[in-house]
Simulated assay, not measured.
Amino acid sequence: MIAIPPKSPALSKTRIAAALSLLEKAGHTPIEPPVLQPADVFLDLIGEDIRRRLFLTTGPDGADLCLRPDFTIPVCRQHLADGGTAPADYVYNGLVFRQRADGTGEIPQLGAESLGRADLDGADADMLALSSSVLATLGVEDQDIRIGDETLFAAVLSGLNLPAAWQRRLRGLFGEGQKLTDAIARMAGTGQSAGDASRDESRDVRFGFLSALEGVAPEAAHAVVEDLLSIAGISAVGGRTPSEIADRFLEQAALAGGNGTNAQAAAVLSRYLAINGPADQALDQLRLFAADSGIDLQLPIQTFAARLKALEARGVAASQLHFAADFGRRLDYYSGFVFEIHARSGADEGQLVGGGRYDRLVTLLGAESDVPAIGFSVWLDRVAKTCGEDA
């Protein structure tokens, strides 16, 4: 007998309609992007965590397709396909599909995207304030708002003069918590060593292969990896071509020997990532860190301060926002300011709202020029559980 998952609580249609009306009155146009989307776009842009949970299928022409795992990319694709010109604001309401251990994998979401606004601070403030208002309309008024900024993290990395491979690796792990901590420890020479890895035979072989690649001319090493993949009959892994897999191996080879030469940089980076607290106090901590470390953070700190001022103007006090320097969101396309909203009371169902800035995404999808963009999604199933409401 097939087990049928128990019915989850659902928000009333009245509350959802009120939230959608709020967004439309704010100037957001309803949009309904197709459920079926090209898989390669998501494999490239959405992040490792969600890549593993895609629902994949094949079209009649042999193209790899997937059920949309989020709305942001499909909304941007439709905006471009319709010949849309920026600025443009959209609102959506529907299902996204991600494999998960419990439930059906159908996740109801409501959200908004804002493309092309040149006043970045104002757009950031408007979207965060709007997401908070939407959540209150849905029934969650006691909110814990958490913010982060990948732009600040990237500026700190750049100021540490780390090897390019380490900068890419650490930036790719931003927001990954323990994985980022472990990578910094390895960079400092205090993390897992080759001797530890040798306890597992397959990892020992892999480490030996990476060590052999280290120091080899990039062109020659690239050719070796591609030849080995060809001999093994491997044409693609996880949507990556042999050339892309070879690039990944070469980067891992550059990272394989954490020998402690970057210990001082690791200490500075760890101090930055420890900045945590109310946003107005965090601003003071950021200024002190910049002065002590000698890293030029003038522009990102000015932007941070201007964003807080814009939020204050919209009734969101900086003292009520919680900033964490290590907070990022696990989607590859986010590129700057990020935020989440949780419920202060009741069981922690995870983020109820998640959003942020993705200024590179529309260009990566084919726009001829850069398009600044920011958006947010509301997890309606989690909101329903938090409110204890059933339609």
Rank of each mutant, 00 (worst) to 15 (best):
Q285L: 10
R382S: 10
G233W: 10
R344A: 13
P69L: 10
P9Y: 05
L170M: 00
R68H: 08
A310H: 07
Q143D: 13
G239H: 06
L269M: 03
D142F: 01
A291Q: 15
T72H: 07
I147N: 07
I31L: 14
S270P: 03
Q285F: 01
A197L: 15
E219H: 09
F289M: 04
D142G: 04
Q302I: 03
F55A: 08
C387Q: 00
I50K: 00
G189W: 15
T137S: 13
F207G: 01
L213A: 02
A86S: 12
A194E: 14
I4H: 05
L110Y: 03
R307W: 04
P60C: 06
A274N: 10
D102P: 00
A125H: 03
A197P: 01
A221P: 09
S335V: 09
L80R: 14
G208M: 08
F55N: 01
Q78A: 10
D247C: 03
I341P: 03
N161Q: 13
K309M: 09
T190K: 15
D144L: 09
L20D: 05
V156H: 05
Q351L: 05
L130A: 11
S198F: 02
T151D: 13
A164N: 07
A274S: 15
I184W: 09
A197C: 02
A367C: 02
F42T: 05
G159L: 12
R169N: 11
L297Y: 13
F304W: 01
D119Y: 06
G350F: 04
G122V: 04
Q285R: 12
P218F: 10
A265E: 04
Q78R: 15
E113T: 04
L288E: 11
L229W: 07
D292N: 13
A253R: 01
L361M: 09
E106H: 07
A305G: 06
A125I: 05
L43H: 09
L160H: 11
A26G: 04
G328I: 06
G62N: 08
L95F: 14
L286H: 09
L308I: 08
F174S: 08
I4D: 01
N259A: 08
A290L: 07
S211M: 12
R240Y: 06
A155V: 03
L229R: 14
Q109L: 02
N262V: 00
P108R: 08
G208N: 15
A188C: 00
P38E: 11
A118G: 06
G257Q: 15
T151L: 11
H342I: 04
Y333G: 08
P300H: 12
T104M: 06
T57Q: 02
T303K: 11
R287I: 12
D142N: 10
V216F: 02
T137D: 03
A101E: 15
A154S: 10
A88G: 08
G175V: 10
V316P: 05
V338H: 11
L228N: 05
H28I: 09
D284G: 08
L80H: 15
E150V: 07
A317V: 05
V35N: 01
S319P: 06
E349I: 04
D247K: 03
I341Y: 00
R206E: 14
R287N: 03
E201L: 13
S114N: 03
A63E: 10
G84Q: 09
A306P: 00
D70H: 07
I231G: 02
H79V: 07
V268K: 09
E141Q: 13
E349Y: 13
